[in-house]
Write a protein that binds this DNA or RNA. Structure first.
Lengths: 243, 243
DNA sequence: TCAAAAGTGTTTCCCTTACACCCATGA
DNA sequence: TCATGGGTGTAAGGGAAACACTTTTGA
């Protein structure tokens, strides 16, 4: 048995990875007053998918999720949290993966580990759109931002996963004060309100929003911002990390 | 190769189950003004553990969790929800399982599937203490309720899992109105308040609690309850399911 | 001078809190 | 009669909502 054949066998078995377990990451960004998610595209298949990956046998699951996030965006120290485990049997659909592998000239054996049933741990991350550098993985052709209200057709149940991630984000937005992770370090109250309105998909009362945010005691007023707009220049705020 | 040997091999491989994935269920009950959880005991090992199980290859993960709940309590149609995935590598500790198997006269091979690393999906359930019938599984000797503030030493990270389940319960108690699942169908406002105070571990103001609960419009006033206590008989309430 | 966005003041409203009082019941 | 727990009335306090007014800026 030569080494190449050995490696092929090991590849087909998925040696070094936790079997049957995957990670799907819904990476949110905010740009042009739109909430966006990072998606991978697979050439020749017309398929789009969430960034994801598998867990090395020496990794914690959360660690693997951070690795996925780092590989796709170049970012560390990012808000990242589990939100749901997708474990229905009906998720299992080998066709898309076969198509992707076929498009790359690989004909996997029927018992290839990637074609088996997977349970996926869903993570969501909130990143600064301006800091992330979308980077495709080795089997995809592009990695880009797509507006939530204009998503392409997605692989398997990835549409559902995004939906559930968005619900989690909405619920946690007020509770955990995580919205700031989607903005640059400095921002105006208007930008923050735009973000909230976009995520919650409803208008908020300007005066009330301003007072509520300031009353939380988590914003530091930095300086005036000179936007060039024909109106009073807004203050610039910064999120205060608790000590 | 005879059949018995074949079966032993299949057993050691864990055929028919999703590999490396488990379920741990924190099943809460309320009795004697105490919050309790269901635990299994393993004779000869002094070990206690959360009810758990594995996922059959024809099952959804959530379905497997409902099966675990049914097997341990005899109950269906119960509030049951995922709350976290425990996937750290440091969880892996074959010793307790070896001890349990050894106590039953089984010496598993080193590569036995149960001795490998597992990622566990944590579920929590809220049951009516009076309806549940604790039932041990085939490898445990007892299945019983233990007060949260008087738990025995638990296997692996099960203490942490219970802790996290309790935190989730506290957060969701007000949001999702799930507390009623821990009471019998009919209850008094005092019983409900006791439950809330026990879960949240703090005193609540009686008058405010009463009004708040009634203002939610989810309680139906049934009849007076004649407790035999030396005081005014309280009303009996029932939770109204939304249509 | 004007329109537009930003910041803040004021009043109203409602929910929570705090306190109190009366009710029903069995010892 | 009394202690005990249950149910509700009332007033105070705090925050959100609604509305308005002033400020600042570039066109």
């Amino acid at each position: 048995m030569n080494n190449e054949f050995k490696n092929q066998e090991a590849d087909a078995r998925g040696d070094g990875y936790l079997p049957g377990l995957a990670i799907d990451a819904v990476i949110f960004g905010f740009h042009d007053n739109q909430l966006k998610v990072l998606l991978l595209a697979y050439k020749n298949t017309g398929l789009f998918a969430l960034p994801g990956g598998f867990i090395r046998d020496y990794e914690d699951v959360n660690e693997a999720a951070r690795r996925v996030l780092l590989d796709r965006t170049g970012l560390t120290n990012i808000f990242l949290d589990q939100f749901y485990v997708f474990g229905d049997r009906s998720r299992h659909d080998a066709a898309p993966l076969k198509a992707i592998m076929a498009a790359r000239g690989v004909m996997p054996p029927e018992n290839h580990w990637l074609l088996k049933r997977f349970v996926s741990v869903g993570y969501y991350a909130l990143v600064d759109f301006t800091k992330a550098i979308p980077t495709p993985d080795s089997i995809s052709d592009s990695c880009d931002w797509y507006a939530l209200d204009d998503l392409p057709v997605l692989m398997q149940d990835h549409q559902l996963i995004i939906q559930k991630a968005l619900e989690t984000l909405r619920i946690n937005l007020d509770q955990k004060l995580i919205g700031f992770n989607l903005l640059t370090e400095d921002f105006t109250m208007g930008e923050l309100q735009n973000l909230y309105e976009t995520i919650l998909n409803k208008k908020l009362i300007r005066a009330a929003f301003q007072r509520k945010m300031l009353s939380l005691g988590i914003l530091e007023r930095i300086a005036k911002k000179f936007t060039g707009g024909a109106h009073k220049a807004p203050y610039v705020y910064r999120f205060i990390l608790e000590k």
